[in-house]
Write a protein that binds this DNA or RNA. Structure first.
Lengths: 204, 204
DNA sequence: GTCTATAGTTCGATAGAC
DNA sequence: GTCTATCGAACTATAGAC
């Protein structure tokens, strides 16, 4: 049925255009202050046209998050297993510096997720938990193979690494002149040394 | 004129009650989503009563920020000059763990400040610039007295320190079980060592 | 699939009585 | 200093025509 195919193709592209516009609007205004009308205007449809595809504003946010998750998984697929956690995270920082809209989208989202009655707080919490688990597992594998000291608190290291990335993103978004890379590489270097070096003599 | 005094006293306490309620509402809902009505309800006045004292919602935010700045200055007044930057920041972290509402207020505010047309973006930018300047100056004084290595980038160290604090606050607010102190003390220890230790032999 | 019309809220702000 | 009344704007969502 050619008619069906054409209609569904058109729906697809419009749907994708809405997803892209929604990311942009939510990035520039946040979810709460970003209106369906402004998203619709960016795509060239009516506000009701947006709701036709996604049912509600909240569901639109959910779909934007799913879409971003998929694209992130694609970005990360180039990660090499033998790279250290810190080398991988530096790569991520460099990639992020090339997509400020996506970084701002998440930074703004996290801020809103700290407030009450926010539809994506559970998503954000889950996202942090998952990222911490993946990162901690990398370090634990290093401990198993003897590449990482076994007397360090892996969770503290991971929390610090993730925190630095979040905080540097904020500073970078507020003042893009200074990049994120150098302070982050400073931390990565210190942590790399910290997790691999033997403890001092007083510990043995 | 006793009448005048009584009236003005009443105004003062109501005004302060509004400031306190506004911090609470903005902390739990953000500035944009936090309504004057909910602030008024918390104080026990009408929405117009709030506007009587502050003129506009935006001005109310400005006054809340001024009020917080003063209280912070008071908190910091106990800082001892001979403490290192890192010791002072650890103290700040511990103080912050005792006032989650204030921490959330600023974390949410910073997230909103990343969006367009936000009335406090300049304030937030200025706040970061000032904090960075004060912190960098402490390290530079250390360089002048020989306590801090002179071949390190002070700005990178400060950016990293501030970033870690911001990021750990986010994680703590999302999941209060794990405190901020331990990962932050890990960083403070690494940085303390980094800024004071001599460079490796390859540098001399 | 896209539109118009519109319901139903909520919000910040102004005017003016007491 | 605090209130009631009210305006005007913005927003999400539903109903239904084409």
């Amino acid at each position: 049925m050619p008619g069906e195919t054409v209609r569904s193709r058109k729906g697809r592209t419009t749907r994708n255009a809405i997803l892209k516009a929604a990311l942009d609007v939510f990035s520039r205004r946040g979810y709460r202050a970003g209106s369906l009308q402004s998203i619709a205007d960016a795509v060239g449809v009516s506000q009701q046209g947006v709701l036709h595809y996604f049912g509600s504003k909240e569901n639109l946010l959910v779909e934007v998050l799913k879409h971003r998750d998929e694209e992130e998984r694609r970005d990360r697929s180039g990660d090499r297993d033998h790279d250290s956690l810190f080398a991988r995270t530096i790569d991520l920082t460099r990639r992020n510096e090339r997509q400020p809209d996506e970084v701002r989208f998440f930074s703004v989202l996290v801020g809103e997720a700290l407030t009450d009655d926010y539809p994506a707080t559970d998503y954000v919490r889950h996202r942090y938990a998952e990222l911490a688990k993946i990162s901690a597992d990398v370090l634990r594998r290093g401990q198993a193979t003897g590449h990482v000291r076994s007397d360090i608190d892996v969770d503290d290291v991971v929390a610090l690494l993730v925190a630095a990335m979040d905080g540097l993103q904020i500073q970078w978004l507020l003042n893009p002149q200074r990049g994120m890379a150098r302070p982050f590489e400073l931390l990565a270097g210190l942590l790399e040394q910290y997790v691999t070096t033997d403890p001092g003599e007083d510990e043995r």
